[in-house]
Amino acid sequence: MNKLNDKIGHFPRQLEDESIYIMREVAAQFERPALLFSGGKDSITLVRLAQKAFYPGKIPFPLVHIDTGHNFPETIEFRDWLAKETGAELIVRYVQDSIDQGKAKEESGKYASRNVLQTVTLLDTIEEFKFDACIGGARRDEEKARAKERIFSVRDDFGQWDAKRQRPELFDMLNGRIAVGENVRVFPISNWTELDVWNYIKEENMEIPSIYFSHKRQVIERDGMLWADSEHLNKEADEIPFEATVRFRTVGDMTCTAAVASEATEIDVIIEEILSAEISERGARIDDKRSEAAMEKRKQQGYF
């Protein structure tokens, strides 16, 4: 019944209307909102939606990037280009600074990454700018703990998510009232799937970082997956880099996002690959594989 070509290129427009409505609620209900920008396709989609929501006005909140120092250079380049293109304010804070200040400790071993560490920098940034709402590109179809999220997700002073005490969220009525010190994480594309995002990018003719398309790069093979070789990756003696033709399906840090072998240089081919993929998007994220409840635990700590 899942006939491939039937599904290609159909983006349910209703989703866009709903997300724009959420963006406008954020701008209206909060004093100091921010859009957490990672450089990945989901946050690029958020920027597009924010642009549409306030047009012909500018996006009324800053884009905030927590730079782990392990980002793909293409992502950083794209981030700067997009901020310029949209005229949005860009705020960058560095995980390296949190490490230098002794607030976060670099992990060791071959799976070392800065994924967990970025929460420290994020919480500090929220405090520094007194952000009361942070818009994120998480989608409920990504992961089982995310499937439980509200659109407006209230976090306490420590940024923690309490899954057992979520507010009822009825119809499209969003209650963003909070006490001093609390903040809200907002997920405007909660109800989009990976496929919806790609179909949207296609229909909107959006620019995305080049690493989403097939290219040649030095990789190593680990646990049956391909990893971009970089100075940040702790390689073992037998992990020898070789050149491969790959693309990335999801973009996080270089240390925790695996590449997929692919010749896809066009978006239609990417969509076809996703439709026939046997592995889910987060299957290429080592940060989720640490334990069965890795995501829920990180969210309790304030991860976005």
Binding site: K7, A147, K148, N191
Partner: peptide, 16 residues
């Protein structure tokens, strides 16, 4: 304990 949202689609519609 809490609602989970989950998605699938057929050629004719998207289900939430």
């Amino acid at each position: 304990i809490d609602v989970a949202h989950i998605y699938f689609s057929t050629p004719s519609r998207k289900y939430i």
